[in-house]
């Protein structure tokens, strides 16, 4: 083979560098496309829905007339469902994460649980809806209620919380455990006073990301049969009911309900373009909630990385 001249080598290097630069530009272009989609989506909904951003929109129930329809029952429903979801998913997810990291023996049972959690994270959300329809709605008799919806979403985000808890715990060095046990603490005391508090920021990040996912979930809630047209709120605890009685502390969990994504779905699928405006405005509100939660999680993680030095 004839050796290359200096000029030829320079040309080869220049060509390689040019291709590198071109690919870099392509990569940035692809990322910019992603950013563009987010911005376009938010702007489109903000502009189209701008005429609905009034207090009435947040305080009115759904209506046949687009201009008077609001999202009161939807956002209240979303908040209540999230409350049930968090109440169920956080203790269960943290407990499962602590068990798998701190207690679980290395045996087939643990392995089954671990493989199972990995697979559950990949099950389509609508399948959780079918599970809830069969088990919560009919077998347990919870009906098409806030309780059914909250528990369904709790199951859905459980793998996210478990994985976040485990990762946060794994980042705690062994010397913390050894120190605690050396002064006579039991395993649970070590977890309770050291492991869980130190893992808290990581767990919290996982919880927020999980709830942000849950608040936007539509399919499983449609499957359990949430209504799309609700012109009343669930009874607040200890207030008077229309029939003269008083609502119990937990009557609201069995009430029929609707949530933000279902309201958006309902408005999007109507042929009348006036409802598009409502869908855009409600979509913007939902996006704002999800983005705020994600931003909080990202910020928490950033702070955590800066502050923790073992």
């Amino acid at each position: 083979m004839k050796p290359l001249t200096t000029e030829e080598i320079r040309a080869v290097i220049a060509r390689g560098k040019l291709k590198d630069t071109l690919f870099k530009a392509l990569g940035i272009l692809c990322l910019a496309f992603g950013l563009f989609v987010i911005v376009a989506l938010i702007l489109d909904m903000a502009i189209k829905g701008s005429e609905r951003f009034t207090l009435d929109f947040f305080l009115n129930f759904a209506s046949r007339r687009a201009a008077q329809a609001g999202i009161l029952s939807a956002w209240v429903g979303s908040l209540l469902v999230m409350f049930v979801t968090a109440l169920a998913a956080v203790p269960l997810g943290v407990a499962a994460g602590v068990y798998l990291e701190e207690y679980a023996p290395r045996n087939w049972m643990t392995q089954v649980i671990e493989i199972n959690i990995a697979n559950l994270a990949a099950v389509p959300s609508i399948v959780y809806g079918l599970l809830a329809l069969g088990i919560f709605v009919y077998q347990f008799g919870f009906g098409q209620s806030i309780l059914s919806a909250g528990l369904t979403l709790a199951l859905l985000i459980l793998p996210i919380i478990i994985v976040a808890t485990r990762e946060a715990i794994r980042a705690i060095p062994a010397m913390i455990r050894e120190g605690s046990m050396a002064v006579g603490a039991t395993r649970w005391q070590t977890c309770r006073y050291h492991i869980i508090p130190y893992a808290m920021p990581g767990i919290l990040t996982g919880v927020i990301i999980g709830l942000a996912r849950a608040i936007g979930e539509t399919a499983p809630i449609i499957t359990i049969g949430a209504l799309t047209f609700i012109a009343f709120l669930p009874p607040a605890p200890l207030t008077a009911l229309p029939d003269g009685g008083t609502a119990g502390l937990f009557d609201w969990v069995t009430a029929p309900f609707t949530v933000m994504p279902i309201q958006i779905f309902n408005w999007t699928s109507r042929p009348d373009p006036a409802f598009e405006i409502n869908a855009a405005a409600a979509g913007f509100v939902l996006m704002a909630m999800v983005l705020a939660m994600n931003a909080l999680a990202i910020w928490l993680r950033y702070r955590m990385r800066k502050n923790i030095k073992w």
């Binding site: 990322l31 992603g34 950013l35 989609v37 987010i38 376009a40 989506l41 489109d44 909904m45 990301i209 942000a212 996912r213 608040i215 936007g216 979930e217 539509t218 399919a219 994504p261 958006i264 779905f265 999007t268 598009e276 869908a279 855009a280 979509g283 939902l286 996006m287 999800v290 983005l291 994600n294 990202i298």
Partner: peptide, 24 residues
């Protein structure tokens, strides 16, 4: 910078994507 953008893109509720697909 890129990681949070991607995370947000993956965190957008699918119903909002549905709206985007149909109307935009």
């Amino acid at each position: 910078i890129a990681k949070p953008i991607l995370e947000l893109l993956g965190g957008i509720p699918t119903i909002v994507y549905g709206y985007f697909a149909l109307l935009v």
